[in-house]
Simulated assay, not measured.
Amino acid sequence: MDINSDLGESFGAWRMGDDAAMLGIVTSANVACGFHAGDPAGILETLRAAAQRGVAVGAHVAYPDLVGFGRRNMDPTSQELVADVIYQIGSLQGLAAAAGTRVRYVKPHGALYNTIAQDERQANDVITALLAVDPSVTLMALAGAPLIGWARARGLRVVAEAFADRAYNDDGSLVSRRLPGAVLHDADAIAERMLRLVQTGEVESITGRSVPVQADSICVHGDSPGAVEMARRIRARLEQAGVALRPFVD
């Protein structure tokens, strides 16, 4: 199993998360590309730390929405969205090369992630961008989303992920952040929840139902309160149960 986290999101004097601590726990790092968060110097620092730790690096591409942290819905034209994603991946590739690592996968962020899970037009725009830059990169997507089939049909490798710190609806979608209980905080309960996911392929929905979630990676949001302790507890619980932890990319 892989554990990933969203990193490189600090912006100047505004600090977001603890990248150094998270990179000692996770096996993959979704690194911001400057559109929803992150500045070049901070991103480069995170990439260097990831390279030193042997953590796989992915491009955390987003809508151009610094004020909204990439969590506001947008409706760019296909021409805009394709170019925006190409631009972000290319920028991170340059910084990654300077840091002694490379971009192995792409994970869309926030509103873009949720939109392309279901919206075929925007999904195909993102797929087109990945194929144009590097057809060998892996796309990380929400487990069970139609996006997975669309991307595989066009020749991309796709890895499905589950969210440790987010509540699920009965249909396997994520509970909106605007609703109570959408974000989970109890580190021990979350660790047990993720062990159940690994062992059974199921999570408990917000209504208490068992929901099938087939995933090869577990995400802990780096900006969540207590994120480092949450990731640490998840890793410890999985290792205690004999689960091998490694990046999903070779």
Score class of each variant (00 low, 15 high):
R237D: 07
A129E: 01
A241Y: 06
Q122K: 07
E192M: 09
G58Y: 11
G58E: 09
G70P: 01
V183F: 09
A153M: 11
L130E: 13
A231N: 12
F11H: 07
G94F: 04
A59G: 07
H221G: 09
Q52A: 14
R166D: 01
P146M: 13
L184T: 01
G42P: 10
R177W: 05
R154P: 02
E120F: 08
R71T: 02
R152A: 15
H185Q: 13
I206K: 13
E80N: 08
L245S: 04
E45W: 07
A13R: 09
M16T: 14
V67C: 12
A145Q: 08
P135A: 03
G242L: 00
G12I: 06
R246K: 14
R102A: 09
V61W: 00
N124G: 10
R237T: 03
R72Y: 03
R48H: 00
Q88A: 15
V228E: 09
H36P: 09
Q240H: 11
D165I: 04
G17W: 03
V183R: 15
L197M: 15
S217N: 13
A37E: 06
F69Y: 03
E204Y: 12
A96L: 08
D125P: 14
D223A: 05
K107W: 13
R196I: 02
A13Q: 15
V198W: 01
A231E: 03
T200P: 00
P146A: 09
V67G: 08
D119C: 02
A129Y: 00
T77G: 13
A59V: 01
P146E: 15
D165Q: 00
I25K: 13
G222Y: 10
I234W: 09
Q79L: 14
E239W: 13
I89Q: 05
A96S: 15
M16N: 15
S28T: 15
P64Q: 13
N124W: 14
I148C: 06
V67L: 11
E202F: 04
Q79N: 09
R209Q: 14
V126T: 02
V213M: 14
A37Y: 07
L156W: 08
D165V: 00
